[in-house]
Amino acid sequence: MATAPIDTVTLTAIINQCFSYATDARFSLADQTTFLIEGKRLRGQLLNLLSAQFDNTTAPFAAATASLTAVNATLSQSATALANTAQTLNSIATLVSNLDKLLAIATSFV
């Protein structure tokens, strides 16, 4: 079994982007609040993921990695995130769910 950590550099970038959009007046107050809540959820997961190792051949690892890449690509382009806010927030919610599934199968923690 090959173990590996999840990409916490990308996850950190996503979290910081969520907090940035939470204070961005171009989004509605409701959307800002949702970005804040999702950012907090992801940060809670990050603190566990920082020290976790996973079997990188599993489906949850692949799904979480794919989600990270997709969400990061969307969030890093503010025009895309603004034009498709609902879709962006949905993809973040999917990422949270994928990371929850991943944490459930961690092989080890600090």
């Binding site: 979290i15 910081n16 940035s20």
Partner: peptide
Amino acid sequence: EVITGANDQLA
């Protein structure tokens, strides 16, 4: 931890 924590607090 520190960077996301500080941004969390600010937001």
